[in-house]
Design a binder for these strands. Structure first.
Lengths: 145, 145
DNA sequence: GTCATTTCCTTAACATGTTAAGTATAGTGA
DNA sequence: TCACTATACTTAACATGTTAAGGAAATGAC
């Protein structure tokens, strides 16, 4: 039974935070001109990819907690980036859809965003990049055994 | 020039968030009994490992932004987990040290915490675990070329 | 020595993360 | 149809993340 914790310099949680900082820095820089946050960008990305979604599915796919999404959606609605409608069959459900203004934010940054991802792939090497995604997937609670 | 963003299901930022959730879930569960947060745990870990530190070094080693650390340190001081003293040579600097009460929180959870890390290593395999740490290190802005 | 600059830290303002409690609608079984 | 439970979402409260502005002490150029 070990009695010493691993050095914080080799700690997985801290390594994950720092890696995230490194990855998000250029994305955040890109978004700073748009007036939207990293989380709002993620919501737009998911909506653009999947179309009309209920709040539960949107929260899951954009990796946001429900209370966060409630606030973020209200803010995005006020900015005209999304629309919220009630499901007439199940009136508890709320349906969310991207607007043309929201889609334009995506379209205007697609090439720049692709470049950022390519830079990271180059930095790591494509094989390493895919390996990293696979290993991260193993840690995801909701997607494995 | 590509005109399509990668699928969000294969997005590195989202994969990093989800992996972090998976890793932190058992740690957060462990901490829920102690009344301290994940960030406060990190501060205690770093202080326990390195001893007396100035705020700048502590922020860097625990991967916290300065304004966050200001608040967290005030809260931890009020709980009696750390002490804050001013550096008499450079009076701008603040020196932070863990208290016996703070150290006890670490000591009481060392074995449980070690077990959590071991479980993750087992889940991934030790080789994969080391590979993952190495790849994450490549993404860290502050520690490479 | 004095003033501009730099460094170290704090405060402020707003967005999000996290947990718990609350509300409204739907489904279910007697 | 009447509880009872479950589901979908909201609200609240507090902690942290993030950026910008501010304050105090040290440093450097002159």
């Amino acid at each position: 039974m070990s009695s010493t914790l691993p050095s914080t310099s080799r700690s997985l949680p801290i390594a994950l935070i720092r890696a995230r900082e490194g990855v998000m820095a250029p994305i955040r820089e890109m978004l700073s001109e748009t007036g939207i946050t990293e989380q709002q960008w993620r919501v737009l990305r998911v909506l653009s990819e999947h179309g009309l979604l209920d709040t539960t599915t949107l929260a899951e796919r954009s990796s946001l907690l429900f209370p966060s999404l409630t606030r973020i959606a209200a803010s995005m609605r006020d900015k005209g980036l999304i629309t919220q409608t009630r499901d007439e069959i199940d009136r508890r459900r709320q349906l969310i859809e991207i607007t043309a203004a929201g889609q334009k934010i995506i379209d205007d940054r697609t090439s720049q965003s692709t470049q950022i991802v390519d830079d990271i792939k180059t930095k790591l090497g494509t094989d390493n990049y895919e390996t990293l995604l696979d290993l991260l997937g193993l840690l995801d609670l909701n997607s494995n055994d």
